[in-house]
Amino acid sequence: MSKKATVFVRLKDGVLDPQGVTIAKALNQMGYDEFTSVRSGRFFELEIEDNEANLDQRLEEVCSKLLSNPVIENYRIEKG
């Protein structure tokens, strides 16, 4: 049986997100003035063969070693 996990990666608070700032400016120029801040990020959908006893730990490793850069980013895992 296979499982799924979704990983959301975003910049930590306090780290400037130039893409988010630019998107927010564009929205404001389009007349959507109420959107005062945008933070961008990315997500990953993982399909996992479910025969690993310590899946949680391995998922954490995958997130901290490769999918995110812990110096500047946080991640959140949603399983299923």
Binding site: V15, L16, P18, Q19, T22, N69, V71, I72
Partner: peptide
């Protein structure tokens, strides 16, 4: 070098994109 931890910090998108 920053990604592998031999050097500290990170290199991000240029501020002006």
């Amino acid at each position: 070098l920053t990604e592998c931890g031999l050097l500290p910090g990170a290199l991000m998108r240029n501020r002006h994109l």
